[in-house]
Nucleic acid binder design. Structure first.
Lengths: 324, 324
DNA sequence: GTGAAAGCGCTAACAT
DNA sequence: ATGTTAGCGCTTTCAC
């Protein structure tokens, strides 16, 4: 492991010159530069990132906090964020909170210790206060932490409206919607508020069932759906996240309930699984690539000291299927 | 951002004492230690990780290279590895190769620059040579890079045998298996070799279709399955990864082929989706938590300078369903 | 254009 | 038990 010092000695120059030649910052004569580069290669010189970090006060690593990587929505989000950050030269450090607040806290600590340059938070295991005092770059995804923390989210109100309009058009009178808890005020709340509002304005009856935001496993959904399916005799429409919609459809089939004739199902998210069922699930698709781009772009601006908006909202879209 | 120096001054002691008091390494009187801790808290002292790293030559970060986080198998693997590493105090840096070898190479560079302490590789976008020269901790998952790099994998031969026995018992005579390419010699090859061998020993006919290891998206599988479905008129059994099995089942249903009466389908992996279909897919389940534990344990031993085995093999298990 | 030297903030060896 | 000091390897003024 040769250091910059050895390269400097071999080339008969100072370490400063080598540093400049390698980083491209500052003046250095063309021929000395070429010589240094050759020697560096010959000595198989590899810069030490830790030393560089200590000097520049940057690590080139961004932390991404999500509730559960295994969940297809978060997996997809993570993938696109990672790709976006990579294109700007940043690496992605993951934190699965799996509902454990210590893990999220631990990541904040990591940020304060300057082991990472910033954090993108998509989990909710910790109170907003944990982030509000930080002087470090933080972006919240699908979470409102007030005007001090830039926020990226889907246009949930639009999604709620799309769903309501679709169900109304299909003639639904008595529907159920399942969603994350209202506590903590997530942008997703807007979806349920708008959905309920539009449905009721048209004279339909809406029952809202809340479930924890951070409990997003398949089994949890399956259990929830099967438990509430008992209520469905009176119900003609359901609005829920895609995974819930999937199990709902499966359960309806098993019970002999005809979809969409007797029961309309409309999902939210736009995950792959909506296209794996028969019929395919009609759903409101979130634009995960665009959401990810917003998160990344905002983080890059923040790191660059640029001014950023306090809220970035991304449109959703209707994805046709056969369940409405 | 107070430094260790300020804490030392405030406490009227040397920086060394503060360092010892905070890290717990070395002697320091109980009362001075208490005093230092109080002052540190009062000053809101946060250790600087970069400086620590430069001193200790460790970052506490492990890189995990996978083909695609969005794929449910890799998402699950990643999740369990992250949890395992976290329990040992390590953080997880992800690299999605998405088939792009530069990205994998970039990560190796990161390791050489000492930005991370080690790498767990589950992708195959780069040749073994890229890793063989490294003097850094590397563990390969489901990939054989020779005796120098410790390897963790499922007992694929066992899996191939289980699948073959199940299909034979069900009376299959003419089957197809789909799998990753034989080039590069992955442990998964054993599965196909053993499957073929057991089937043929019993007089059955086996056709093996190869597909790229790193192309693991849903769409790719769907396309492949639908293309090959044309061959199925003569075929009475299929052995493929779970995603392929899922699409195969869906396609069979659509074509009116009765499963399992006319066509038996057996998957491999044990993903959630095998339990989302009706009938549920019979599959050979990999023990992802155990595989992850092996990867993590091996990495920890490697970092601790302990001797490690060159190969860790984890048993698979039969997961009953209704497709065989 | 280039060299020397002062950090970056911490750890660890050594002396006391 | 504790203070002092020499690194860790790089970046970045600041003279020359």
């Amino acid at each position: 492991m040769s250091s910059i010092r050895e390269v400097a000695m071999e080339a008969g120059v100072g370490v400063g010159t080598v540093s400049r030649a390698l980083s491209g910052n500052g003046y250095v004569a063309e021929d000395t530069k070429k010589r240094i580069l050759e020697i560096a290669k010959r000595l198989d010189y590899t810069p030490n990132e830790m030393a560089k970090n200590l000097s520049t006060k940057r690590t080139g690593i961004i932390g991404i906090v999500v509730p559960d990587i295994e969940n297809p929505f978060w997996g997809r989000f993570l993938k696109h964020v990672e790709i976006g950050l990579y294109n700007y030269g940043f690496k992605s450090l993951i934190c699965n909170t799996i509902g454990v607040s210590n893990r999220e806290q631990d990541f904040i600590e990591f940020l304060k210790r300057k082991a990472i340059d910033g954090i993108i938070v998509g989990a909710h295991s910790l109170k907003d206060e944990a982030y509000l005092g930080l002087k470090h770059p933080v972006i919240s995804f699908e979470r409102d932490m007030g005007p001090m923390i830039p926020q990226v989210c889907s246009n949930h109100a639009q999604g709620g409206r799309f769903a309501a309009e679709a169900l109304l058009k299909a003639g639904c009178k008595r529907v159920i919607q399942l969603g994350g808890t209202y506590n903590g005020h997530t942008p997703a709340d807007e979806r349920h508020i708008e959905f309920k509002s539009v449905m009721e304005a048209a004279g339909a009856n809406v029952t809202t069932i809340e479930m924890s935001w951070d409990m997003v496993g398949y089994d949890h959904y399956r259990t929830i759906m099967e438990n509430y399916m008992e209520l469905f005799s009176e119900v003609d429409g359901i609005f829920t996240a895609d995974i819930g919609a999937y199990f709902c459809l499966a359960f309806a089939k098993k019970k002999g309930i005809k979809v969409p004739e007797e029961l309309k199902i409309i999902g939210f998210d736009g995950l792959e699984i909506t296209r794996m069922s028969d019929p395919q699930i009609t759903t409101i698709a979130q634009d995960i690539p665009a959401l990810s781009r917003s998160c990344v772009g905002c983080m890059i601006d923040l790191l660059g000291g640029k001014k950023v908006e306090s809220k970035y909202m991304v449109d959703v879209s209707m994805q046709e299927g056969g369940t409405v």
